[in-house]
């Protein structure tokens, strides 16, 4: 694995001058796409999302690699087409270089409207890395709730009000759904940890077959945070165990980072404007439920990883 300094010297996939919000951390990973591996031609596809609209306003493009966008709910399918054409042309001797394919979507385009085409692409076994940058709502259309929106967040379609504390119920765990596809690689990563992220990208790209990376990516306007807070909020998301960093290789769980001390999830929540209304005694039950869900989720992952260790100990 090249160091970050070495990686920075390589040609990036994504040019400056794009129109992402100031402080948006999404370009951290788009710049990495061509920097983590050697020897592959990289092609990217995008679902309709913030990244798509802000990187491709005609006649300009921030993309220095071939890039295709067709619609919101289908990057799994459109990139299945691109990847399959590659195999067809390679078989017929019309292409000789080795290609790798990346599909990118936000949580709305991945957890919700694009879930079917993602599932199809993974199940069929395309050699495709799907990266979901999860910012927890439909940010591109103005912060509407998605199935990735955490409990209690105020969004424009789950606004807090006299009769509501915001988004009701728990978010969907898409990473687990992807594990259930029995693909070779599933990982959760965070935008604040470029070393971990680049290693995961490298593994996913070099794998021969489908891979899925769920990437925590704070949103400046959607989370109602200052433009210099995205990386810090991603870090705290991991430290509070809201967003565990783990990978599942051939079905086996491995935790990549265990926080050194217990940090209550409120330390993450109350830095964000979308949760600020919950910082009152009358909402302590919502906050408690949130904390419990975080613990339940973390413990579940710990148990999966522990059972892997137990099994391998038995084998040895």
């Amino acid at each position: 694995m090249p160091s970050l300094q070495e990686m920075a010297k390589k040609e990036g996939a994504f040019a400056g001058g794009h129109r992402m919000c100031a402080g948006c951390p999404v370009p951290i990973f788009t710049k990495m796409l061509t920097r983590v591996t050697d020897g592959y031609e990289i092609v990217a596809g995008n679902a309709t999302c913030c990244l798509e609209v802000a990187s491709s306003i005609f006649p300009y493009s921030a993309w220095k690699i071939p890039w295709i966008h067709t619609a919101f709910e289908n990057v799994g399918a459109s990139m299945s087409g691109v990847e399959t054409m590659y195999r067809a042309l390679k078989k017929r001797g019309k292409i000789t270089k080795p290609y790798k394919f990346i599909a990118i979507g936000g949580d709305g385009g991945t957890y919700d409207i694009g879930l079917q085409s993602l599932s199809g692409a993974m199940e069929r076994g395309h050699d495709l890395v799907y990266i979901c940058y999860d910012n927890g709502a439909y940010m591109n259309t103005g912060v509407q709730r998605s199935s990735a929106t955490p409990m209690g967040a105020t969004t424009t379609t789950t606004p807090m009000g006299e009769q509501s504390y915001g988004r009701q119920g728990n978010r969907k765990d898409l990473s687990r759904i992807m594990v259930a596809h029995n693909i070779g690689y599933v990982a959760q990563a965070s935008i604040h940890d470029p070393v971990d992220l680049s290693e995961k990208l490298k593994k996913a790209i070099e794998l021969d077959g489908p891979a899925f990376i769920n990437l925590l990516s704070p949103c400046i306007p959607g989370w109602k945070i200052a433009p210099d807070m995205a990386v810090e909020l991603a870090r705290l998301g991991v430290e509070t165990k809201y967003w565990p960093l783990y990978e599942v290789i051939d079905g086996e769980y491995k935790i990549n980072y265990t926080p050194k001390k217990e940090v209550p999830v409120t330390e993450w929540m109350f830095l964000q404007g979308r949760f600020k209304h919950l910082n009152k005694p009358e909402y302590s039950d919502v906050v408690d439920a949130f904390q419990k869900d975080v613990e339940r989720n973390w413990n579940w992952i710990v148990r999966q990883a522990a059972s892997v260790e137990l099994l391998s100990a038995e084998v040895n």
């Binding site: 306003i57 005609f58 993309w63 071939p66 295709i68």
Partner: peptide, 15 residues
Amino acid sequence: VLDTENPSTWGALDL
């Protein structure tokens, strides 16, 4: 799309 030497952007936002 399968030409990294002449990378093209397909499906740009067109206002």
